[in-house]
Amino acid sequence: MFWNKDKNRAAAFVDYEYWFISMKNFYHAKPDLKDWCAQLRGKYQVESVRFFGNFLDRELADEVTRIMRSSKPTATTRGIL
């Protein structure tokens, strides 16, 4: 009743490596980044979404492009996007 998206600010810090490996091992699928980000942005005023993991790993290296498409702005270091 008194909920206001503009007043519900949020930031997300995601252990993407754990999420990715869990989805792969249990469901044989990849995380649905577009839908997850859309749901988060639909409910909150998202200030920042950051993903971390070992993106130098072969399996996760291809995920960097998917992450960048789904969550901007993105800061890249050795293990954080």
Results as ranks from 00 to 15, higher is better:
Tyr18Gly: 09
Ala11Ile: 09
Met1Trp: 07
Met23Asp: 06
Ala11Val: 11
Phe2Arg: 10
Met68Arg: 13
Val64Tyr: 02
Arg78Val: 14
Phe13Gly: 04
Ile67Gly: 00
Val64Trp: 01
Pro31Asp: 02
Val46Asp: 04
Thr74Asn: 07
Tyr18Lys: 13
Lys7Trp: 02
Tyr16Arg: 00
Ile67Asp: 00
Gly53Leu: 07
Ala75Lys: 11
Arg58Ser: 15
Ala29Val: 04
Asp62His: 12
Met1Phe: 06
Phe13Ala: 13
Val14Lys: 07
Val14Phe: 01
Ala61Thr: 11
Leu56Asp: 11
Glu63Ala: 11
Asn8Cys: 13
Ala61Cys: 11
Val64Cys: 09
Asn25Lys: 10
Glu17Ile: 04
Lys30Ser: 05
Ala29Thr: 09
Asn8Thr: 04
Lys30Phe: 00
Met68Trp: 00
Lys30Asp: 04
Lys5Ile: 08
Leu60Glu: 02
Asn54Gly: 10
Leu56Thr: 13
Ala38Arg: 14
Lys7His: 07
Leu56Lys: 15
Ala10His: 04
Trp3Lys: 04
Ser22Thr: 14
Cys37Asn: 11
Pro31Phe: 01
Ile80Trp: 02
Lys5His: 05
Asp57Val: 10
Asp62Pro: 02
Met23Cys: 14
Ser70Gln: 08
Arg41Tyr: 03
Phe2Gln: 06
Pro31Gly: 04
His28Gln: 11
Ser71Val: 07
Trp19Gln: 05
Glu59Trp: 02
Trp36Gly: 10
Lys72His: 07
Phe26Trp: 03
Arg9Gln: 13
Ala61Val: 12
Arg41Ile: 03
Phe51Gly: 07
Leu33Val: 01
Ile67Leu: 12
Gly42Leu: 06
Leu40Tyr: 10
Asn25Pro: 00
Phe52Arg: 01
Ile80Arg: 09
Phe2Lys: 04
Asn54Cys: 10
Asp35Leu: 11
Ile80Val: 15
Phe55Pro: 06
Asn25Arg: 12
Tyr44Gln: 07
Ile80Lys: 08
Val64Gly: 02
Trp3Ala: 10
Arg78Asp: 15
Ile21His: 13
Asp57Pro: 02
Arg9Gly: 02
